[in-house]
Amino acid sequence: MSSVPFDDFDSPRSGRHRSRGVNWEKWGWIYMRVSGVILLVLIFGHLFVNLMVGEGVKAIDFAFVGGKLSNPFWQVWDTLMLWLALIHGANGMRTLVNDYARGARSRAILKGSIFAAAAILIVLGTLVVFTFDPCPPVSAADAHLLPSFCPAP
């Protein structure tokens, strides 16, 4: 039978790891609940504005996103959503790896991949939100793809 050695588990009442540094599992548990409530508001708002208002998903294009991301309100909204959701999701995936992945090596590989994916996408997404140019230089033929507030090329 291949399984995690029994020594990896602490007896629930042993009190062995009490008062030794930060209790990261406790803060992870709190994070899931706090971020979850905030994400409910942020994501429901995101879905309402992008899928319910006007023509919904059919209205989404570069000009639509350009209009949103040139507004500081949506920059903050989207950045908060990005960070909170990726960390919430990555921590949830970590829980599943802890529950289902056997063997120290596969657990390390899976957790490393989850961490790397979350970290890379947080950096990428944050850079996109704050370095985004809603009026990039385009050929005259593509000028109609830009938001209406962009100056004519």
Binding site: G66, L121, L124, G125, V138, D142, L145
Partner: peptide
């Protein structure tokens, strides 16, 4: 979410790519 961040990041590439 992983896919959605990547596709939205295309706004930084070009309007044609994103559309």
């Amino acid at each position: 979410l992983l896919v959605h961040i990547l596709d939205t990041a295309l706004v930084r590439v070009s309007p044609e790519a994103y559309n």
